[in-house]
Amino acid sequence: MTFDWSAVGDFLPAFFRGVLVTLQALALGSLIAFALGLVWALAQRSARKAVRWPVTVLTEFVRNTPLLVQLFFLYYVMPEWGVTLSALATGVIGLGLHYSTYTAEVYRAGIDGVPAGQWEAATALSLPRGRTWTAVILPQAIRRVVPALGNYVISMLKDSPMLFAIGVLEMLGEARQFSSQTFQTVEPYTVVGVAFLVIAYPASLLLRALERRLAR
């Protein structure tokens, strides 16, 4: 096997452009996933069946079907509906929507984990419903789910190369482009593969440490 270090050097500028796009997609996708997941989790606790049911069906459907196909769906179908977005924006929405169905479960577990006594104390103090949620329940629920949310950010990072399939030039997209222009395949793909390890492994170590701290 020959590994051409100069090809690595040639690839680096494109690689860093790709890293930037990946991180952008990851950051924006996470924001959507965190916010939308909370919306799903709260909607699923609604007293109204007309709210609970559609949300349950939607989240189960999105969670049990492949992100890649969802990305294609958004990429090809949204313009037919008159919404034309850039590939990156479409990818961010797809990532965020897909992972919101996972974070919804995380929030749900976190909310269920707040002891019943906290609700009772809020009732005993006559705290209004909205205040009970924002000042008492959610701060406690979210604190205990931070590690689980972090784990999903790492999962999102590992799924982000799928965005290349709809034409986003993230890390894998840049590698593909580089290899089709220069016919160097070993180096760009290896660099990208190692880059994922280098980002994901320390991140997961960090989360495990955080989890141990919060567990105390």
């Binding site: 002891p115 006594g117 009772e120 104390a121 005993a124 604190r143």
Partner: peptide, 16 residues
């Protein structure tokens, strides 16, 4: 119930 106060067996203070 605004005029009713309660103290619980498990305190139920807000830990946050």
């Amino acid at each position: 119930r605004r005029n009713i106060g309660m103290v619980f067996q498990q305190f139920n203070l807000f830990p946050n």
